[in-house]
Every structure is written in structure tokens, then in C-alpha cells.
Design a protein around this nucleic acid. Structure first.
Lengths: 204, 204, 204, 204
DNA sequence: GATGAATGAGACTTCATTCAT
DNA sequence: TATGAATGAAGTCTCATTCAT
């Protein structure tokens, strides 16, 4: 395929994704039609079907991509700071995630409880462009550099993400069982407890 | 209203709920029409609207009811046994929940990650007939009888349920990050850690 | 069903049939949409699907009904006249059919070569309201009254109708191999030959 | 145009025709898209339009070509045998046609009642490559060699082909008014009657 | 109260056709 | 010449909802 056509094609796909993201953060999926997406993206309706099977596919793609972005942002913030204690680093990262979700409750309506897709949704990750950067591997590396050994670090990270995503969603969107400010310290305590109970410190 | 008409009406509502439950455990909501529900229930289409606003309402009602049933079943099992240690009792109960979800993955497709609705969905609880029996209050009573003090027991229970529901769903339905048999012990460890970290033992 | 609703329903079905007939005699099926039919009939689009599965079904229904009407008209003309000789009677009837087709070439575009459906399309006849009057039985009765015996009268009638319908269509619509005025006497000769060869005269 | 490009072009056209034939014998026209045809033929979608105006054109071309092939096959069989009596020769030929249609009912679904196109579809014949061999002329020659005179031999042949094609289609595809084995002798009788009635034997 | 015929907006999707490459 | 990405009109059909009975 010539380069120009290829560029054009990629550009259209991105237009569709942007349009869908914008629509799906302000509306429920059942209220967003493919017509809405394509007309907002400025492409023909048929073009949608060159890239996505249906609107569920584009939604799932966006959930994975946006969850991933949130995790990556949090890690980038962590990288900027020099937090040596492992637990503190994780809590800091989760705190960054919470901040993003609180600031962007519309995005949370899209992601719902699927935050962990950002690190664990394999099928979708294969289609994400920058999939070389494996989010969950970072957790493991961090632990190793801190001299901490987890029998199954992916499992620990998964559990923390599921807890965070699920609790945040219910608290921020529904206010159950309390507003997020109230839930936040309890969540941090729980995460610290999970980390501590799963960890074995290696002899250096 | 005469008693017979009242009975008839209740019977129709139950038919609708049964039909919807059966359909929604085998199909996604968007593949189930109100026509499907009413024809399976053996009532006219218009009758649906005498009881529910739309199909989202009946789905949410069912999620809350079925989640609740699962929690109540687990508590009933716990009541049959005489497990004195509080943590063991909670783990036993969660274990009962897991068993039900594993045995009934179709039901899990309906409930998705909303297991905590069984204890915390206030709006729906007001319409549930036997709402006198408050599920989350049981957790608190249990702790008190065990001489354990939680600053905010509802929060602890909420967090455990969110973690359990979310982790189970992803593991059982998607096999991520591992099959439920592998995830189960890690989940129990995490729950025990949360319980321990939240607890203060009262001097009797 | 109350009488008023029933009447209304029948009326709508008839509107749809009239509209479809009018559209399908001036356009090819692929150029007529269900929208066209319903808007011409003055009913809602969904109403179409209460009566017909798709546009092919309504077309086939119309072909059978209109073919039948043509055969019945021809028979009615025959009944008005007192043509005693059997062959002359059949030729007269076929002649009446030809007249109708020539006068109404638009209708012929709908029926195409399916003239025999008017007498032999069982599936559709079951849904035609006045199906008590069996067209092909009339041929047999006529033969019997004339004292003529056919081993298989239905087969003779079928063959004559297939020949007539097919030849007329190609001649009138395509002018092949010649205009209908030229083909007509040859067709009559062929029919007379078929009748004569199939017949055995009964001893009275 | 260089010979190689010309060959390539012809090859593509043949690929399209083969693909379309294969698709149209197993599916209705409306279920076959130009995409289906080109992808099965292994050429790009735009290439289709270099050879055919639309899918109706390729279908009609195939009907004419395949009908013609059937008639030519039948004549070839006749040529192999030395059947001197003219009527027997024609019946033999029609019998060969019936055999082909019975053996290949899928092909009959394409041709439908248009068997006579094989001999009479002038427009299409002009585009058929081997159009030098005029099928209907053979009938005439045959009659002349047998010393039989028909006032309008093309008309007789046309009528026989229309009858044969129409009757075969309805009997083989729909089983109306009876299976083809039952209809076959009646058809032969009718054809013999038509031949006899049209014929004048020339004094040699 | 209960019904279910009728509605009609609008969803999804296909596909013939074009045209820049 | 051949391609196939892009188009967008138009198609079919569904289905939540209403309301006269």
C-alpha cells in the first residue's frame, strides 16, 4: 500500500477513535450510534466497518487504551519522583490513578470497572500500537529493584488494580458506600495490607 | 383490590422476572427484547410496562436480587456451621460465594462485577420484598459478637465484596490473570490481610 | 380479536397489496423498496412485517393472485359464451388470456413466465381467500361435459398454460421470435395439437 | 495491445465468469455481491467493471452461455447418433436436454425458464465468442435434409424450447404438477404433436 | 387491569460504484 | 491496466412504546 493511502487510513481510524471517545464519555453506549460516531469523525458510515466490527469493539478498544493511558500516566508521575520505599511507590501510583479518575469522571463512565484492562487485556493489547511497553512488567521490575520478592507479582498487581478500579467506580459514580475522599484512606490501607501480606523480602 | 386480582398481578410480575432471568443469563441485554421477555412469560407486551419502566430496570432489579440471594445463601451456610474465629467465618462465607459463582457462570454473566449490589444497592433494596434482612448489618453483628471492633465495618465489608466480585468475574469469565482455582488462594490471602489491617480488638 | 380491529387489519393488508401491485407493475422488484410500498399504502413501515416476511413474499403472492385473476376472467368470458366444441372453448379461453396480457403488458412484467401459478401454486393458494374455486378443476369438468377423456387432464392443462405463459412473455416483452400477432396463430395451432394428441373420446 | 496483456485480460474475464457461475448456481442473484464474485475470482473489485456493467449483465451472459452449451451438447449427442426420422431426432435432442437439466438442477436455478435464450437471445449472442454456430439454424437444416417443410421452422423450434424450458423448470425445481419422470412422457407427446401439426412434407 | 396491533424512528449494515494511485 | 480504499445512499428490519379495545 502506498504511503499516502496508509497515512490517510490511519488518520481516519484515529478520527473514529477520537469521535467515539468523546461520545462515549458523555453518553451511554446504547445512546451512541455508529452514525453519530462517523458524522462526528467526518468520515462515511461505511468507513467505520473497515476498522471495527461494531460499536462494542470500538468501545472495548477505547476502554483498554484509556485504562492503559491512565496507568502509564501514573507510572510516569512515579518515575518523576524518587520514592524508594516500594509500598509508598505503589500507593503513590494508585493515588495518581485516583486523581485522574476523580478529575475525569466522564472517562470513568466509559471505563466502568475495567481499569485492569489497561494492564491485562491481552487480546486488545495486541492491536495497541505501543504494546511493547508492558504495564504489568513495570510492577515486577520495581519490586525487584526494591529487593522485594513476590511469589506471583502479576497476581498481586491484578488484585490491587481490580480493587482500585471497582471501588473507585462505585464510590465516584454512585457515591457508595461513601464519597471517594472517605473511601480513599480505607482503600490505601487495604492495598498496603495486600502488598505486605504477599511479600517476602529477599536476602540481598 | 380483591385478593385474587392482587395474586394474579404478583404472579404476572414473577413470570416476567423468571423469564427475564432465564433470558439474561444466556444472552446479553441488547439481544433480549421486551417481546422476548413477555412472550416467554406468557403475558402481553403492554403488561411489562405495568411493572417496569424498561428493560434496564428489570435487569438491575435482577442483578440486585440475585446478588443478594448469593450473599444470603452464603450467610445461611455460615449459620449452619459454628465457625468461631471471625476471619475464618468471613473467608468461609466468601468461599461459599465463590462456589455459587463457579457453579453458575451464566448467572455471573448477568451480575458481572456488581456483586456488591446484593449488600449496598439502596435504591433497589427498597423495592425488594424481604428487605428487612439487611445483609451488610450481619457482617457488623458478627464482628461485634466476636469481640472485634472495626472503625467502619461497612467499608471493610464493601471493599471485600468489591474485590471478590471483580476478581471472580475477570477470572471466571475471562480467565484473567489465571483460572479461578489459581486466583482463589491469593484472593483469600488478600481478604485476610484487609480484615487484619482494619481490625482493632476491643478489650471485653 | 374484535371485529373492528380485524377489519382494520384486513384493510391494511389490502392497502399494502394494492400499493405493491401498482409499484411492481411499473418497476423491477429491486427498484421497489418496502419503504416505497408502505408509504404508498399509507401505513407504517413496521406494519409491512405483520403481513409479509419480505418483498419477495408479497411479489409471489401478487403473481399468484393476478395470474389467477386472469385465468378466472378468461373462464368467466367463456361461461358467457356457449362454445360447445371443447377445443374451441379452450382456444377461446387462451385467447382471452392473451388479450388480457396484451392489454396489460405492465402486469405481464410482474407475472413474467409464472402464469401457471394462477392454477398450480399450491402454497400460495392456501392463503388466497377464495381458494374454494379451483381453477384447474374447471378444465377437467369442461372436458367431461364434452364427453372427452384425458388420462391426466391436469397435466394437459399445465402444459398448455406453461406454453402460453412462456411464449407470451417472450413475445410480448422481448418481441422474440416475433410480435405476438405473429406468434398467436402458431401458439393456437400448437395448443390444438396438444389437446388432440392427449385426448381419447369416451363412448357415451 | 501486446499479446500477453490480452491473454491476461481474457484470463481475468474467464475467472470472473467462472466465479459468477459457481456463485449463481448455488445462490440467488440478490445474495451474490460483486465483491463475492471478484474475491472468488481473485481480482480486484474495480476490475469487474472493466468487463461488465453490473451483476445483471454477467448473470444474463451466463444464462445465455449455459443454455447455449446445453443445446449444443444435445446437438453433439444427436450428431453422434444416426437418427433418421426427424421427429425422433428432435425428441432425442430434447431428451438430451432434459438429462442435462436433471443432472444439474443447480444450473437450472440459474437458467430458470430462460432455456430458449440459448437459441434466441440475439443481443447476448453477438458477444458470445463462437456465435458463428447458430443453434436454431441447425433445426432448420435438419428438417430440410429430412425432406420436411415448415412454414416457419424458427417458430416451431422456439415453441418447443419454451415449452421444454418452462415445463422442466417447474417440474424439476418445484415438483409441479408432478416429478419430471412423470412429466417427461407427456412433454414428449406434446412436442411430437406440435411437430406433426406444423409440418408439411415436401414432395422430394 | 390487560391486551397486542400498530407505529415509525432509527439502528445496523451492505454494496455498487468511483477514482486516486 | 488494475487496484481497493472510501464512499454514502439506501436497504432491511427491529423494537420500545402507545393506546383503543
Amino acid at each position: 500500500m502506498p504511503s499516502k493511502a496508509q497515512q490517510n487510513k490511519l488518520h481516519k481510524k484515529n478520527s473514529l477513535l477520537s469521535a467515539a471517545l468523546s461520545l462515549l464519555t458523555s453518553n451511554d453506549l446504547q445512546d451512541v450510534s455508529i452514525s453519530d460516531i462517523t458524522s462526528k469523525a467526518g468520515v462515511a458510515k461505511g468507513t467505520f466497518y473497515l476498522f471495527f466490527k461494531d460499536k462494542y469493539e470500538i468501545r472495548d478498544y477505547l476502554i483498554a487504551r484509556e485504562s492503559r493511558r491512565i496507568l502509564q500516566n501514573a507510572q510516569a508521575e512515579l518515575d518523576k519522583n524518587d520514592i524508594r520505599a516500594f509500598d509508598d511507590a505503589i500507593i503513590f501510583m494508585i493515588s495518581q490513578i485516583l486523581n485522574q479518575l476523580c478529575e475525569n469522571p466522564l472517562l470513568l463512565r466509559l471505563i466502568r470497572r475495567n481499569l485492569s484492562w489497561g494492564a491485562f487485556h491481552k487480546q486488545l493489547h495486541s492491536t495497541l500500537e505501543d504494546s511493547d511497553l508492558d504495564v504489568s512488567a513495570r510492577f515486577e521490575q520495581h519490586a525487584i529493584s526494591a529487593g522485594i520478592y513476590y511469589a506471583d507479582p502479576k497476581m498481586v498487581y491484578f488484585m490491587i488494580l481490580e480493587l482500585t478500579g471497582s471501588v473507585c467506580y462505585t464510590s465516584i459514580v454512585n457515591g457508595i458506600p461513601a464519597p471517594i475522599e472517605v473511601v480513599r484512606p480505607a482503600l490505601f490501607d487495604a492495598i498496603r495490607a495486600i502488598l505486605a501480606s504477599a511479600r517476602r523480602i529477599e536476602a540481598a
